[in-house]
């Protein structure tokens, strides 16, 4: 459970960083002249919190098979898409939804999700390399 919370905390900070990048890219492309207020700074943090909720809710103590994990990841991505879209357009009742903005958000969420998976994998890869090095040292000392 402790590992799970640690992983989600790490995911949160990665999401916040990637959302900042996504806002920057979408802003440059879709609304380069728009000026943002101070509230814009809190959006990545809120998105980060919303983004980790499905992961926290869908935590399973069971060891999942690869297929189960892929299915869970797809459900998780769809849940995050839904949560972020409701958060963005839900307050206005989904009226006057700008299609380009809608698509930009859908793609950004997917980009952030894939980014988090890739970064977490790279961190695990570094951990695995350290474990292999420690293991070789252990084997050498026991030979």
């Amino acid at each position: 459970m402790r590992e799970h919370i640690k992983n989600n905390l790490m995911s949160f900070f990665i999401i916040v960083t990637l959302v900042n990048i996504a806002i920057f890219i979408c802003g440059i492309v879709l609304a380069p002249d728009e000026k943002l207020g101070y509230t814009a700074f809190i959006v990545p943090v809120i998105d980060g919190l919303l983004g980790v909720i499905p992961g926290l809710v869908m935590y399973s103590k069971r060891e999942l098979t690869v297929r189960q994990m892929i299915v869970r990841d797809i459900i998780q991505l769809l849940s995050i898409e839904l949560i972020i879209l409701v958060f963005t357009f839900g307050f206005s009742g989904f009226s006057n939804v700008d299609v380009s903005k809608f698509l930009a958000i859908v793609l950004s969420v997917a980009f952030v999700y894939v980014g988090v998976v890739v970064i977490m994998y790279l961190l695990d890869f570094r951990t695995a390399k350290k474990m292999t090095d420690d293991l070789k040292a252990f084997q050498k000392s026991n030979n």
């Binding site: 992983n7 999942l64 695990d124 890869f125 951990t127």
Partner: peptide, 14 residues
């Protein structure tokens, strides 16, 4: 002593 290398697997497993 029989492990050659360790790689990351999905979902925090190795």
């Amino acid at each position: 002593m029989k492990v050659d290398s360790i790689k990351p697997a999905l979902n925090g497993r190795f």
